[in-house]
Write a protein that binds this DNA or RNA. Structure first.
Lengths: 205, 205
DNA sequence: GGCGCAGGAGAACGATCGTTCATAACCAGA
DNA sequence: TCTGGTTATGAACGATCGTTCTCCTGCGCC
């Protein structure tokens, strides 16, 4: 596996017959047409099954979206957390690792990352809460690293929370423009983006 | 008028009876429910007129969205361009002015800024082209300032285009979280954001 | 062999969608 | 005062929506 090879699937083949096919079809449909623009019939067609069979797997269209967003945000949180917890001597190193992991998810699962930020507004109730919580926890990882770096004198940015929010905003936006055939490979993009993040924090050279 | 007072309306009262009321109702509806989630009946209700009367002003729902996005992007471009063209001795000063203008638009017309980035995907054909062109021109202003600053040795960032894209991404994302009652006033936020932009460019101190 | 259940299909339900139509009120200019 | 365009309305159209209902198939298990 190299820099340009496909990433592991976000939606792994499941024990239940068509579950992963339905989730992937829903991801494509929501990504192309938005939650309200995509119909259950579109999703059924994409999953090569019947409309009514969708309801043997998910009780409603909203729950289908919720399941997608749960998986996406949980995976992004897990990746970022793992990177942030790795051995590192400085806050700058931890930040670089966290940014690379975050960007790695966005590039590996671009459609999922895009749907996660643009369709979350159509979730409500408990489903929304869980997804928002995962997102906030991911955000908190960056805030904590930045705050640590400021305490240690590595970063001189005055408002760690604001700076961290700008970093995640920059990195999430990658899902809106990245093209695999572009100038930068996944690894190069992640590297470059971590440089912007450190620069934004006014890291001491 | 101070820092917390309301901004001039993006949709000014027009000569045609209900045009501005319809546009404002459409802006609210699209902002709250998205293009496909909002119905023409919702918009008519918001504008306190009848469903069929909407079609005396706009030939279709798509054209209504297009008109909104045209106005929003044109206004943001005009503000940014004006700021970038102002007298300034350094690229850093021009960048600060441009960021403040851009952020100023986002805060003054938060819903319009949010709709402009999240609903542009539902435009097609000529309508889409015009809006994309205005957006690209705004982007180009930042790219040019950054490139100038790099040439002059003010900024040391290696890829002006990428850096500029990160700057506009950060500033556009403000529309997704800003609350007027928050810690920062409009002017303070614009100031702070321009500092992040300069830091990101690795401006010489 | 018969039972039960998960997985699958087509048809249909009521609701809502964007749009159109016929028609009426209003109002400035001849 | 008549007139022609603008603004407005409620009713209706065909299409499509999410969801449900009924029924069928295949298959492991006592």
């Amino acid at each position: 596996m190299n820099d340009r090879s496909p990433a592991p699937e976000l939606i792994a083949p499941s024990t239940r017959g068509n579950e992963s096919a339905i989730l992937n079809a829903a991801l494509d449909a929501f990504g192309e047409q938005g939650f309200n623009g995509a119909s259950m019939r579109d999703i059924a067609r994409g999953a090569r099954t019947s409309l009514s069979n969708l309801y043997n797997y998910f009780p409603s269209k909203s729950e289908l979206l919720a399941e997608l967003l749960r998986r996406a945000n949980d995976e992004q949180l897990a990746r970022t957390r793992h990177a942030a917890n790795a051995e590192a001597t400085t806050a700058a190193e931890r930040l670089r690792a966290a940014v690379k992991a975050y960007v790695g998810f966005v590039v590996d699962h671009q459609v999922a990352a895009l749907v996660a930020i643009s369709e979350i507004r159509y979730l409500a109730g408990k489903n929304r809460e869980h997804v928002v919580e995962a997102r906030d926890q991911t955000q908190a990882i960056f805030e904590e690293i930045v705050a640590d770096g400021v305490s240690a004198g590595e970063f001189t940015t005055p408002y760690p929370g604001d700076a961290a929010r700008n970093i995640t905003a920059m990195c999430s936006a990658i899902s809106t423009w990245y093209r695999p055939e572009g100038r930068l490979s996944k690894t190069q993009l992640a590297e470059e983006q971590s440089r912007y993040a450190l620069a934004l924090l006014e890291a001491r050279p």
